[in-house]
Design a protein around this nucleic acid. Sequence first.
DNA 1: CCAAGTTAGTTTATGCCGTAAGGAGTGGCA
DNA 2: TGCCACTCCTTACGGCATAAACTAACTTGG
Lengths: 263, 263
Amino acid sequence: MVVFAGQGDARRSMALLWRTTRSKETRPGPKPGLSVDLIVDTAVAIADEEGMAALSMRAVGERLGRTAMALYTYVPSKSELVDLMYDRALAELSTHHNLEAGWRAAVTSWAGEAWEFYVRHPWVLQVSQARPVLGPNEYVMIEEATRILRETGLGAGVLRHVVGTLFCFVRGAAQTVAESRQAPVVTGVSDEEWWYARSALLAEVAPDFRERFPTLTWLDDEGAYRSQDETVPYLEQEGRDTFTTGLAILLDGIEATVGRTGA
Amino acid sequence: MVVFAGQGDARRSMALLWRTTRSKETRPGPKPGLSVDLIVDTAVAIADEEGMAALSMRAVGERLGRTAMALYTYVPSKSELVDLMYDRALAELSTHHNLEAGWRAAVTSWAGEAWEFYVRHPWVLQVSQARPVLGPNEYVMIEEATRILRETGLGAGVLRHVVGTLFCFVRGAAQTVAESRQAPVVTGVSDEEWWYARSALLAEVAPDFRERFPTLTWLDDEGAYRSQDETVPYLEQEGRDTFTTGLAILLDGIEATVGRTGA
DNA sequence: CCAAGTTAGTTTATGCCGTAAGGAGTGGCA
DNA sequence: TGCCACTCCTTACGGCATAAACTAACTTGG
């Protein structure tokens, strides 16, 4: 019998994601002290607090008072655990955005929520997008975005690409901020300290910066890099503004496309 | 004397990136058998061929006929090596896009080149963006994008966010394809095989899919998911189309903003 | 009620990883 | 010649995911 690589595991993994494993009422052997849900929640907590790099089977086990190996009774491997974490986290997103004020308002609200979600769970952005996890909540998220954007009246082909573009942008915009939040936790150095030290070194190492990078120098001279609000970390403010501006531009672009197609 | 965490290392790292280390003509000790350039090139080759996960100090050393520890004479740590790889790879990008045909054509050409670059070097997308590496070639890339988009006449503040948005989109759009290229190499399963197996499992595990996800079902019924060109892997074609469509939308949005600001 | 079989969890071990520490050989310069 | 900076090696440590074998708890068939 020929079995595709990983196909047997794929069945188990899908069953875990969609929770289709019907457990008999009573089973022989000792009572389970843990559960998939408990393990996934613990893993999410670690990733939220200490970053994806700190997520190890040992770390999860330790928080639950077990060894790393104990987890393998519930979860086939670490990568399956990450998939489960991903889909569990996505459950936070709300699913019924109001379309009464028009699609533009709804998209803005959806994108804002998604952006905040990614920033709250930076590790989510490290889960590969190419071959989707295909869990129920991922489908809910895509369904919701598509449902809203369908209101534009665009055809199915273009619509799919528009949804993809929106995802790319929101994820990318969130990534910058997510990483800037994670960095101080990992390195113990704040944005300001880091930037201060680095810009001094930059001047040292590239004394001809102004001549080599005239446009960036112009941007700097125009005061574009001056922070407005001192209470918010520099890179975070920057990322938030880029998201707001970029989203507006994207929506303008979609409107233009809608107008052109004549919906 | 108080030293900020990592600051001493930061100086050495910047010196390496900007190649400001003046090496004396003759030095005591055995002739170096390797060089930073050689090591970085080898590391890039490994990452290109086998993915970032396969990049280890041992692997790089082995390709060069040395042990892993030999590399530490040239490079302070693996993370510094990754920074050097990143900046080296960026050197591939061309720097003088023609502005004669207008900024829209130039942006299209720049973005297309960047997209292909990311797809060619998928691992580049795994290098953190939050705290930039600040190498010379990264500055060249940002300078070039900013130089082109400055032609729109937008003010410095908005311009910075527009550049950021463009980067988010291009990186995000490339990531999907980059990962879909990497996946078969790592897992040994093609897109088609993978998708075929998974969609069968999906039907098994979620028999009520059509009712739960009406919009996605509509998209499917409209034939939006049917592949046009059988010679190109499915996910790759999908990603390429999303990039093209999304870029056009983004440019429309920028034009709208430019028109509104009255440039 | 007991033996068989199933399950939860442990210990132990394998083979990766980054890199610290220390030692061996190399070659320019005093 | 001896010193010393330098390259490169061996060894070692603590971390990682996880395979394999084991113990102990529990249900169930006889």
